[in-house]
Design a protein around this nucleic acid. Structure first.
Lengths: 143, 143
DNA sequence: TGGATTTCCATAGGGTCCCTATGTAACGTG
DNA sequence: CACGTTACATAGGGACCCTATGGAAATCCA
């Protein structure tokens, strides 16, 4: 496996990821808010800054996203009684329901396409694991 | 592998893809035009509508992207002498050079992250193949 | 105790990417 | 030539994201 191949693969990975995101945005839901719902579902209530770090976006971006989600009734913002700076963002039942619906939609869409290509869910799991690894280490370092 | 798992995976795939795209846009350089350069590199000169179909975006979007690329000097638009409606979009040397540079950057970034996770390029290739399959069949007629 | 600093969130302003709706010009056909 | 079709461009708007900046609460420290 040569370096040229790796260049191709890295570039291709980004290209395909971009197309996937666009397709989802057009046909299904707003991914930005769903990412936040997913984070809250996995990790429980969090502050805006924690969410921004977890989603690796800027704090103002997350701030705006949360505001949108509040308007939609999918999350609530409550004050932390011990630290008035912190805003605890938590899922509502409606938010949980919406997340479940989106996941069903995505799952079905992925399953449909898999069926046409003799792909097993394990293959998708492997792809997810690779993406996670590629994204995981925002490790800075000299050199 | 249950349906619940598949829902999780489909959703997770989209979430990770979105984060990847955002990370690339912020840290590296990926004006959506690179996708077009990649298409032209793979398939040779094409018209705007063909490019839009290949990238699965709308024709006006591709029209604007191509205009941007022309301004950057990475592609040229030339009239087809046989059909004055068709614009042949072709890579310039500068466009080819830019594409090569972007690919090197992506390849290096991916390689760095892989090294931290005991991943082989073959794993990335597998992930790319899965993404391609997930995107490929927008459920159209026979080929 | 009274700054100084830090932490957390919000707003302002701007950019990119993408969409639908709607032209306009050139082709083909009867 | 009228007619529908094809290929591209423009107009208008929305979603998402960024940096810069501001304000308020908590914490640190002489």
């Amino acid at each position: 496996m040569s370096d040229d191949d790796l260049e191709e693969l890295g570039s291709e990975l980004v290209v395909l990821a971009a197309r996937l995101v666009r397709a989802v945005r057009r046909d299904l839901d707003q991914p930005a808010g769903v990412r936040v719902l997913s984070l809250l579902d996995q990790h429980g209530p969090r502050g805006v800054s924690e969410l921004a770090a977890a989603d690796s976006c800027s704090q103002p971006t997350m701030s705006g996203t949360v505001t949108t989600l509040v308007d939609l009734g999918w999350v609530t913002k409550t004050q932390d009684p011990r630290d008035a700076r912190v805003l605890r963002v938590g899922l509502t039942d409606a938010g949980r329901a919406h997340l479940a619906a989106v996941r069903r939609t995505h799952g079905r869409a992925v399953a449909d396409r898999l069926a046409a290509h003799d792909r097993s869910p394990a293959d998708v799991a492997a792809a997810v694991a690779v993406l996670r690894d590629v994204l995981d280490p925002p490790q800075e370092g000299p050199r």
